[in-house]
Write a protein that binds this DNA or RNA. Sequence first.
DNA 1: TTTTGGAATTAGAATAATTCTAATTCAGAA
DNA 2: TTCTGAATTAGAATTATTCTAATTCCAAAA
Lengths: 132, 132
Amino acid sequence: MTNYAQQILDLILTSGDHLTAEQIYLRLKESSPRVVLATVYNNLNTLHGQNLIRKISVEGYPDRYDKTTRHDHLLCRGCGVLADVCLPDLTAQLQARVDVEILSYDLKLNYLCPRCRAAEAADQTKKEEANL
Amino acid sequence: MTNYAQQILDLILTSGDHLTAEQIYLRLKESSPRVVLATVYNNLNTLHGQNLIRKISVEGYPDRYDKTTRHDHLLCRGCGVLADVCLPDLTAQLQARVDVEILSYDLKLNYLCPRCRAAEAADQTKKEEANL
DNA sequence: TTTTGGAATTAGAATAATTCTAATTCAGAA
DNA sequence: TTCTGAATTAGAATTATTCTAATTCCAAAA
């Protein structure tokens, strides 16, 4: 594994977050100022191809990268923030219901994070006041 | 609802498939040759905002659109093709495990479609022959 | 050492998907 | 009719990502 690949992998594994290619690039630049975005993409694709990282795609947002340990995600429908959530492994339960071999699955729970819930409530209040 | 919106919605609901904006555009052009891709996107966004259609995002592929009736998806990891699969509603089961209110969830089962499975097997055979 | 061949990286052009902006058209209310 | 606001169009712009070609790096062979 090359030096950049290692650094990128470390960033993803230790960030405790769900970084985009752009965010990884910016962080990597702090220690390696000459690095270029294409290198980040190259390495992300390589790492993903080797199953060392997971790629998370949500409509409306750039792809984000994550560790591969099995877990699920909470996705805030307001702001797009992802949070990890570890639910029991459903593979057996799902496999029993379909007639093809499941390699893995991807489960996202949609919700509103506290901040967006508050924003929505405020919005609602404002609308009601306008309709007095 | 405008005429285009209606036509686009009909296309999505009756296609029995998971169409991309581009595919919808091409089909719509058959009956309305003057329509433009931006109009398709505009209407898709409107319909999605009204929760009349569902948007499916998979890394490496353009967004696809689908009916909103609750169902899950099989995703072929070889070619990206999506197939519907109707599994029992897991909302209650999931809700019992998390402390936030789940609005909905998104479940994709990764597998290899028969064609890609065959292709992979052939590939494997070829590799083994090369190593004789 | 020097050479050299392949992999990694860089630079930046290219592409694909999608959004945005401004101009135009349209459909219905006045 | 004329006016107004929404829908549509055209096409530029943006964003995310990939590709290509040139360059650099590094390790093993000479």
